[in-house]
Nucleic acid binder design. Sequence first.
DNA 1: GCCGTTTTCGGCCCGACTGTTTTCAGTCG
Length: 588
Amino acid sequence: MLGMKKGMSNKEVADLLEMVAAAFEIKDEDFFRVRAYKNAAASIEHLSSQLKDVWDADKLEEIPGVGPSLAQHLDELIRTGRVKHFEQEVKGLPLGMFELMKLEGVGAKTAYKLASEFDLKDEKTAIDKLRKQVLAGKIKKLQGFGEKTEDELLKAIGSVQSGSDRLLLPEVEAIAEEVVEYLRSSGLCEKIEVLGSFRRRVATVGDIDLAVMTDKPTELMEYLLKFKGIKKVLSTGSKTTMFIHSSGRQVDVKTQSKDRWGSMLQHYTGSKLHNIHLRKLALEKKMSLSEHGIKKGGKLFKYAGENEFYEALGLKYIPPELREDSGEIEASIKGRLPDLVELKDIKGDLHMHTNIEIETSHDMGASSVSELLNMAESLGYEYIGLSDHNPKMKGLSEVARIKVVKKRNEAIDKEIASSESSVKIFKGMEVDIRPDGRLAVSDEVLGLLDYAVVSIHASFRQSKEEATERVLRAFDHPRVKIFGHPTGRMLNKREGLDYDWERVFEECRRKRIAVEINSSPERLDLPDMLVRQAVKTGVLLVINTDAHEASSMKGMRYGVGVARRGWAEASNIINTWPYKRVEKWIES
DNA sequence: GCCGTTTTCGGCCCGACTGTTTTCAGTCG
Ligand SMILES: Nc1nc2c(ncn2[C@H]2C[C@H](O)[C@@H](COP(=O)(O)OP(=O)(O)OP(=O)(O)O)O2)c(=O)[nH]1
Ligand SMILES: [Mg+2]
Ligand SMILES: [Mg+2]
Ligand SMILES: [Zn+2]
């Protein structure tokens, strides 16, 4: 009933702690004890490893926000699947309240009042039953509730669940562009930036956070409220307006003056945990931080630039992609921040698909070799690698497959001969790793190529052990140089595979196989946290677009964002290398 | 309940907006 079971994910444990925190809140338990539980929940949710593994290593108390008491409870949870003390705290509460807390504007206290009043004991029916009470006009009769709260509740019930998925980066760009264009048309904005998780280049984004530099905040917000793209205003004031966009997505707009812009950029980029860590650090130095600046002895100091803001705290500027409270503040203090890879360091793209017909196993590309070359030229690249899918297995004999691959090589050679481009081409192929780890083409076919990208496109239900054996077998073939979109995840759709990453990375390092960071916004695979682990291991990485048409090659920036979130420097990324060095690596 | 290159006690990130409040609690970012 409390969602306690063996093998809980970090998120599930975090939810459980949030539940206990809510129980404390209702009982007017000490505010800071409630906060301690919430802090621990956030900390566990953002852990870069499985809680179970931390427990195995006997390091629960090393998790920030977890002390002796919580460590003991978590130990009990992991060993037995339940925590007596937690059950005690939650016992007697109407369980429907935890469902009601998912409603906009409903927190622990409100949820408890409603669930108690209407006897909502069942999580599954709680919201439905509440709707009936609202429609019957029962809410406004309750102590502390009024007409408006009743209206708001009904709206909140109506919009629950609608669009629970998080946004992909191009979706954010599209919505942000529309709102930004409208705001600009006011003539009141000196500058507009998309901040929050988008600026940190998180793989998926919860809402669109916009900051506007203006000296007329009230007029600007009045103007914003007339925007046709607003479905529903959540709240509005001169400093903050939050609304639901016609796409169903939440947009938060904040205003700030030019002289305080730096502190706004810092605050509103987050992450929340980064901000809180920074603010605690400041308190030790008798400073108080906010989006308005730094208070020292009651006096407010203003910062127009973000750089100066960090420097005022004795820190080196921290790139947004690192701001997750995962060691970046400590690194900044010590002056040990990485020199992150940048888009301009990229000299080529080694995973893309052409329109050459070779009866591929998956989608072929839409662009010709010369179109791809032109795009590469305009992006300033030195080289590209063509990696069409392998010829399909069914209905083609080995002899026929060899023939079709030779024909493709000839077609590419012809394109090279007739091209005036200085961009060099590697002849590659994206080869399926079959469920048992065999490749979809023979070693003889591989021998016809400069390199192979090996990747998984089916059978995603394997255990960690099976999946690990599967890919390790795949690496054991000639010309295998890149492990493409390693987990196979599809954001919001499919989890992807989990491996014994230590073994996989070690094998890639030994064989000098580059692990791909696939830039396709629905993949962003290798995920950022694993990039960080790969960087620590010293594995080669490559950032590719997997373009199926020339214009998609412009998506390299998404992959660079992932690499940066993984603390990668240019030296970790092989396609920052010049052509000659890549050629040598491919031939090795 | 957590935490400590000034503390093992006494603090805990900080601010914006809303509704029903007779002075501020609740919720959210
Ligand atoms: N100091 C502080 N800042 C916060 C807090 N909550 C949010 N912020 C700041 C940092 C966040 O990155 C920024 C935007 O808030 P969001 O809730 O939109 O979070 P964010 O964009 O990081 O993630 P998201 O993808 O939207 O879930 O506001 C908070 O409790 N304290
Ligand atoms: Mg956000
Ligand atoms: Mg937001
Ligand atoms: Zn591909």
